[in-house]
Design a protein around this nucleic acid. Structure first.
Length: 869
RNA sequence: GGGAGCAUAGCUCAGUUGGUUCAGAGCAUCUCGUUUACACCGAGAGGGUCCGCGGUUCGAGCCCGUGUGCUCCCA
């Protein structure tokens, strides 16, 4: 097979992906091999591929492909999440464009549109993952609203309700005024916002004392005030506790209470208490038995509690109320103030704390085993620092608000009778069976849907139908899954809850390792976002550089556990690496016609092969241990260096035959074999080009994709060291040539003065080729008018045609000498320190003594060389 | 306000139990080079007060304290 001049990724990628699919390599069925199971973090059904997905899925594919080549039975399950709020918002927007208002539709009509939308636009992202080479088992594609999945979610709700772990209650929730739905705490994004601090005075019901002044950033909430609170030890206000004041503008009488929750230094030290609109105030109100007065409608406008502002938006009111307060003389002052404001993750609306009747999961009971699983390392987090974050959250866990005022999702299986009694069961018939008193009554189902995460927390179980068809062969084989790869942002949303669901319903953890990827940022460290426009078009990049180069670029820049600063230059590096791989293969193929069986393998080539074998084995071991520790980026760097430097720059040059000379068959075959091992090592990272070259090198019976790794050979340390010495000699001599401005083309005479002559004789040809020596001789005495190079105990003399720059030579030697003497001095100082000799471990002392001996020998060599100049 | 983490070359990062010549890698930079795989290349070089201060130790990039700066999470 002839190789084209350059590597063209596009064709190759399509060809091989197609081939792999046709062969069914990505499909898994339970068998007698060990399972390696990965479930994809299901992207939103509305999603399109972005850099975060690219990183995340590349990592998963690396792990999965490696497992496949290790002879395991990998199963990587794809799928999508119905993403209730995000999808409903898209559908509502689509309907609006068509001139249809959601409010004009029945639930069923709306859902018909939603499903249509899902079928048409949903899951684009799954197509895009194919472009990246992801080896997903497409036959297992799942969706969180598949019929069995839907049923399971409902079943879980009913089960938790029956166990008393789900309840309905009026509580303070985060209200999204735009989507008109409750949000969980995790769906609220806190941002710093420049606002004002309003100092407002309340008239006191005490003769002689006129006002008390409070400070607030939300003056529009004064209509919901039911108390003013001060610190019990605050001398300024002590005498007011138990008295009353009047809310400005409406003159409602409210008590002044004391609680040590108050920070005396903050604001004026007096806090207005609005239990209906602030969680802390709510708690304070509960404690002190205060009234709760709601002032907002569900769309964020003011209600009757604020008579002069009815129907106006609360943000609008905040602006105008200052003037009104000022007019009535109640505004004391205004100051600039930066505070944290909660925004809806989905609609970006300012979230309002609001009292509301919602469904909740009691998390305290579920958290126990889930915390234990991680703290005991039954589930390992990578990097482990996230254990702390996890523990902190689990220790302070709050109940989970799971109802959403949406239609797209799993409808809550609760029915109400005319009197408002609640009945929970899978369906109306089940309700009738379970609660005989409901027979004949008209029941209405709860209109709300469940939080998206209430379905995703079952993902590792239900993709194998572990709940809808318990104990089936697949769930027993694939569960618990092996590794979860996800973003740290959803450690609470998803990871923690999957662990809870796993413990609750399988009695087992859902996965053994969790690898948290970093966040993809741009070069300047900014998070990638649509609004900043700093998110590159991934498919465009794949077109431009090739999928392998993109995978390489994103992985090489992605240190374990850290954020990734995305820069296109690493993609270029990836593309260049493609070229390097391609060209090395071209070189090997060029030799193919010149392969000869005659004679024996020359000793130089034999040395090179022994050395590379040792280097390869050593690196394979290194990569193995790095991957076990999920240090993927380092593993890739190591492989990159092995291929580019050790194989291409050193090994191939060492065995390269002279111009139009034959190459011994043993050497050629071994080189091909080495190269194939390198391709195999690299394959999980760059699947396409490696598969292509694997087949281009020679006729293969097996695709690389499914070729199992062979056992790693023994590492011959001595050979490894001999290779390192050779590289060192070559580099040093090349440096000497460079420094003495010997033209690359000019061949020199090389004289070697060494006690270890035999070692150099074996590799004479390599040495001559690599330092461009026309002759190599051995000597016991210095060679006159030559460039002297000292390396460890050996000396090298280069004889060139041109005059030698003795001065610079001398300078270099003197510099080296000085360094060696300084080093010797420090070693001697250490060795003469009695405390060191007494306390240090014997092996450390032996090392120091060897250092001393080496330094002395080295100094002698340098001094001898200097004497000759 | 509470918690976690980070600070090593121009940039992005390794550096394991404190002890090999330990101060490293890749990229970037500079010099030289177009010898039939590759200029998307080759050969070589320069570049760091390991954030500041104090401590423990025979010995600290690594351990402890403290200061400064930055990031993230939670409220």
């Amino acid at each position: 097979m002839e190789l084209s001049k350059n590597y063209i990724p596009g064709e190759v990628e399509n060809k091989w992906y197609q081939h792999w699919i046709e062969k069914g390599y990505f499909h898994s069925e339970p068998n007698n091999k060990p399972a390696y199971t990965v479930v994809i973090p299901p992207p939103n059904v509305t999603g399109v591929l972005h850099m975060g997905h690219c990183l995340n899925n590349t990592i998963q594919d690396i792990l999965v492909r490696r497992a496949r080549m290790q002879g395991m039975n990998p199963c990587w399950v794809p799928g999508t999440d119905h993403a209730s709020i995000a999808t409903e918002a898209k559908v509502v927007a689509m309907l609006r464009e068509r001139g249809i208002a959601k409010s004009s539709l029945s639930r069923e009509e709306f859902l018909t549109y939603a499903w249509e939308w899902k079928e048409k636009y949903g899951g684009i992202i799954l197509q895009q993952l194919r472009k990246m080479g992801c080896s997903l088992d497409w036959d297992r594609t799942s969706f969180t609203m598949d019929p069995d999945y839907y049923e399971t979610v409902i079943k879980v709700f009913v089960d938790l309700y029956n166990k008393g772990k789900i309840y309905r209650g009026k509580r303070m929730i985060n209200w999204d005024v735009r989507a008109k739905t409750a949000l969980s705490d995790e769906e609220v994004i806190h941002k710093e916002v420049n606002g004002k601090m309003y100092h407002i005075r309340y008239k006191l019901e005490i003769p002689g004392e006129e006002y008390i002044t409070i400070a607030t950033v939300r003056p529009e909430t004064i209509f919901g005030d039911t108390a003013i609170c001060v610190h019990p030890k605050d001398d300024r206000y002590k005498h007011l506790v138990g008295k009353h004041a009047f809310v400005p503008m409406i003159n409602r009488r409210i008590p002044i209470i004391a609680d040590d929750y108050i920070e005396m230094e903050f604001g004026t030290g007096a806090l207005k208490v609005t239990p209906a609109h602030d969680i802390n105030d709510f708690n304070l109100g509960q404690k002190h038995g205060l009234d709760v007065i709601e002032t907002l409608n569900e769309d964020g406008t003011m209600n009757e509690a604020a008579p002069m502002y009815i129907g106006k938006d609360r943000i609008e009111v905040r602006k105008i109320i200052a003037a009104d307060l000022e007019a009535s003389g109640n505004l004391v002052k205004l100051e600039d103030y930066v505070n944290q404001v909660g925004f809806s993750e989905r609609t970006d609306a300012i979230v309002e704390p609001r009292l509301s009747l919602q469904w909740w999961v009691d998390m305290k009971q579920l958290a126990g085993p889930a915390l234990e699983a991680v703290m005991s390392d039954e589930i390992q987090f990578h990097p482990a620092k996230f254990k702390n974050v996890y523990r902190h959250w689990m220790d302070n866990i709050k109940d989970w608000c799971i109802s959403r005022q949406l239609w797209w999702g799993h409808r809550i299986p609760a029915w109400y009778d005319a009197d408002g009694n609640v009945y929970v069961a899978e369906n109306e018939a089940a309700v009738n069976a379970k609660y005989p008193e409901t027979k004949g009554k008209t029941l209405t189902q709860d209109a709300d849907c469940l939080d998206t995460w209430f379905s995703s927390w079952l993902w590792p179980i239900e993709v194998f139908k572990g709940m809808s068809n318990p104990n089936n062969a697949e769930i027993n084989y694939y569960y618990p899954t092996s590794t979860l790869v996800t973003a740290p942002e959803i450690i609470f949303f998803w990871v923690a809850r999957m662990i809870m669901a796993g413990e609750e319903y399988m009695g087992k953890i859902p996965f053994k390792d969790v690898y948290f990827t970093g966040i993809v940022r741009d070069k300047q460290g900014r998070k990638m976002s649509k609004s900043l426009g700093n998110s590159p078009d991934l498919l465009g990049l794949i077109d431009q550089y090739g999928a392998d180069a993109v995978r390489f670029g994103i992985m090489i820049a992605s240190p374990a556990g850290n954020d990734l600063l995305f820069d296109e230059s690493t993609l270029e590096q990836g593309r260049n690496f493609n070229s390097k791989l391609w060209n090395a293969a071209k070189l090997l193929k060029m030799w193919e016609p010149r392969v000869s069986n005659e004679g024996k393998v020359e000793q130089d080539a034999a040395f090179a092969m022994d050395w590379f074998q040792a280097k390869l084995s050593a690196t394979q071991l290194e990569v193995d241990s790095m991957l076990k520790e999920f240090r993927l980026s380092e593993a890739l760097k190591t492989i990159y260096g092995l291929i580019w430097d050790d194989y291409c720059s050193w090994y191939l040059e060492w065995i390269k035959p002279g111009f139009e000379q034959p190459i011994h068959a043993d050497v050629y075959n071994k080189s091909i074999e080495f190269y194939d091992s390198l391709l195999q090592l690299l394959h999980p990272f760059m699947p396409f080009i490696t598969e292509e070259l694997h087949h281009a090198l020679k006729a293969q019976t097996e695709d690389l994709c499914v070729k199992e790794y062979e056992a790693i050979g023994k590492v011959e340390e001595a050979v490894l060291n001999a290779g390192a010495l050779l590289k060192n000699v070559i580099s040093t001599l090349r440096d000497a040539r460079n420094k003495n401005q010997i033209k690359p083309k000019e061949a020199v005479e090389l004289h070697i003065q060494s006690e270890n002559k035999a070692a150099y004789q074996t590799i004479e040809n390599i040495l001559a080729k690599q330092v461009n020596a026309k002759s190599i001789a051995y000597t016991n005495a210095p060679i006159g008018s030559s460039i002297v190079v000292a390396l460890e105990k050996d000396k090298f003399y280069l004889v060139a045609d041109q005059a030698i720059d003795t001065a610079s030579l001398k300078e270099n030697l003197l510099k080296d000498l000085e360094h060696q003497k300084g080093f010797l001095a420090s070693v001697e100082k250490k060795l003469s320190n009695e405390k060191f000799v007494q306390n240090a471990k014997p092996e450390i002392i032996a090392i120091e003594q060897k250092k001393k001996a080496d330094a002395l020998a080295r100094i002698q060599t340098i001094e001898e060389s200097l004497a000759q100049l």
